[in-house]
Amino acid sequence: MIASVRGPVLEIGLDHAVVEVGGVGLAVHATPSTLAGLRRGVESRLATTLIVREDSLTLFGFADADERELFLLVQTVSGIGPRLALATIAVLEPDTLRRALADGDLTTLQRIPGVGKKSAERLVVELRDKVAAPATVPVGASAAPAAGGAGGRREQVVEALVGLGFTARPAEQAVDAVLARSPDAAAAELLRSALSSLGRSR
């Protein structure tokens, strides 16, 4: 397993970053909050895991080893793959996820796109005894600087939300609502706010 990568950040997208390691640019898929903590041209370190499939090798990156372990743990549940696991830690911060699993909080778990009541119950049954409820919930990462016009950001963020499992129409409505309140919001901030809004509406 590739446990971590460190190097200058060459590119930052809405769902991945490219980190140069030994002269090679590695595409690392990550959550909006992790990507918001990166800066182009600045050396960064990410905890990582490599998911191997017959037709692909996909590298996932995390702000710390704690997020990575939860990403891997969630995938031990039947029917949950890397995409849904990444959506899980994108919508719910690690401590929020642990608390929901430990408390059997199905409502919170159903904020995750693609997770209905039965899936939430399965998460609780299979993971409740593997996590401990935290004492506090940490504050999220700061937003990255704004980039591009509102139209371009809107299209990119809607596409990222659809990639996380939300349907197009609710994604568009959530992004438009955030832009109406904060027209100059950075793409990463726009994505996190829309995720929060979609989570509450589920």
Rank of each mutant, 00 (worst) to 15 (best):
V42S: 05
G41M: 08
P113C: 13
H16E: 01
A150V: 11
F71S: 00
G37V: 04
E93D: 11
I112V: 15
R202N: 00
G41S: 10
R154D: 08
M1S: 13
R111E: 04
A120I: 08
R122N: 04
L101F: 09
M1N: 09
A168M: 09
E155W: 10
L106W: 11
L38D: 00
T58M: 07
L84E: 01
G114Q: 07
E172W: 07
A171G: 02
R122I: 01
E159H: 00
A180Y: 05
A87Q: 04
M1L: 08
G149Q: 03
L86P: 02
L59I: 04
P145W: 07
L38I: 01
R40T: 13
V157R: 10
T34C: 13
V115T: 01
G22Q: 08
A144M: 13
R169D: 14
D105H: 13
A144Q: 14
L127S: 13
S197G: 15
G165K: 10
S4D: 03
E155K: 15
V162C: 02
P183Y: 12
L38N: 00
Q173V: 05
G81E: 07
T108Q: 13
L73C: 05
S78Y: 05
H29T: 09
T49S: 13
G148W: 00
L195E: 11
G151W: 06
D176E: 10
F60D: 02
V137H: 13
R192I: 06
V178W: 10
V28K: 02
T34M: 11
L70A: 12
V139C: 05
A143R: 13
R154M: 05
A150L: 07
G151E: 15
R99S: 09
L84W: 04
A187P: 02
L72H: 11
R128T: 06
R153M: 07
K118T: 11
Q75G: 02
I112H: 03
D55S: 14
V175S: 03
I12C: 02
V157N: 06
L123E: 06
L26I: 02
G41D: 12
G22Y: 07
A180P: 06
V42A: 11
R154S: 07
Q75C: 06
V139K: 13
G152V: 06
R128M: 13
R169N: 08
G22M: 08
P170Q: 12
E93A: 15
E54Y: 08
R40F: 05
S78N: 12
A27P: 08
T76A: 10
E93F: 04
L161G: 00
G41N: 11
G81H: 12
I2T: 02
S44T: 04
F62Q: 09
R169T: 14
R122D: 03
A194Y: 06
S193F: 10
E159A: 13
R128W: 12
V77C: 09
V139E: 15
R98H: 04
G25H: 04
A100G: 08
R200E: 15
V74S: 00
R39K: 07
F60K: 10
V19K: 01
R68N: 02
E126K: 12
S56D: 15
E126T: 10
V9K: 11
A3E: 15
E159K: 01
L198C: 13
S193W: 08
R169S: 14
V162K: 03
G116E: 12
